[in-house]
């Protein structure tokens, strides 16, 4: 059983390809967002638990270390959203030629970077302030 070939066959790929990078980063950002779900549900239950619990939760969520988490979530959200839309376009059969895919990979990186910067700017300079 253990001698059967395993998928994904990581060893047969050239690890420097942009295709590999965009794919693995989509997966990685998906995992980060899954962890973000924990945070979302924690926050929602804190809202439901009343103002005292909410204040304690917001204190925890306002610690300096939380900024690292928000940065990861902003980057993950931006990339996963844009790369996910690229996947949905692929599912219609469009953009699968090699040159098109290379072009769209660049578009995904640039657009998601711009979106992440926009969101980060909004969160830290114009967004709602925690009490």
């Amino acid at each position: 059983m253990s001698t059967r070939p395993l998928s994904p066959h990581l060893s047969v790929y050239k690890m420097s390809r942009y295709t590999l990078a965009t794919s693995i980063f989509n997966r990685l950002t998906g995992i980060v967002l899954s962890l973000g779900l924990l945070l979302l549900v924690y926050w929602l239950t804190a809202v439901a638990a009343g103002s005292a619990r909410f204040a304690r939760a917001m204190h925890l969520l306002s610690l300096p270390a939380a900024k690292l988490v928000y940065t990861a979530l902003i980057v993950a959200f931006s990339y996963h959203l844009v790369a996910g839309i690229r996947h949905l376009i692929w599912d219609t059969g469009r953009g699968l030629e090699r040159a098109q895919a290379r072009h769209s990979a660049l578009v995904v990186v640039l657009v998601s970077l711009a979106l992440a910067l926009l969101l980060a700017g909004f969160v830290w300079f114009a967004g709602a302030s925690a009490p």
């Binding site: 959203l81 839309i85 969101l119 709602a128 925690a130 009490p131």
Partner: peptide, 21 residues
Amino acid sequence: LVPLAVWFVVSLLTLPVLDHA
């Protein structure tokens, strides 16, 4: 999730304050 997630993020960011009320 495309519209739902965008709606959620935009709503959260456009709340004037993040206090309980």
